[in-house]
Amino acid sequence: MIDIKTIKEGNILVLTVVGDVDASSSIELDTALQSAIESKEEKILVDCKNLNYISSAGLGVFMSYIQDIKDNNIKLVICDLNDKVYNVFEILGLHQLLTLMATNSEAKEYLGEV
């Protein structure tokens, strides 16, 4: 249901999420994010171009790292959310706490500048 690819592009770690994130597949997302944060990556980009659906459990995963990101001074950007998924982030209010960008290049630019 979900496929997460982790590629290092320069000093940015890019996680490409493909598929649906529901209660069971959110564990994979959690593992991927956790290992990225534990390996002391400073710039993480989560590309959600092919993320079709995210359940509340999936949102819970992103939410649970907000504090860690802040504490470790990590720049985490989520980009290319489709309208539906973006709406879900927005309703919950997560867009206020996470950095969401419209496109991959915009996100990279942002991460590069920082």
């Binding site: 939410m63 907000i66 504090q67 919950l92 209010g93 997560l94 206020q96 706490l97």
Partner: peptide, 17 residues
Amino acid sequence: EPGLGLGILRNDDFHNY
């Protein structure tokens, strides 16, 4: 209207949202 889920921000900042 703006808002934020309960338990997402577990500190006093919450009321700003």
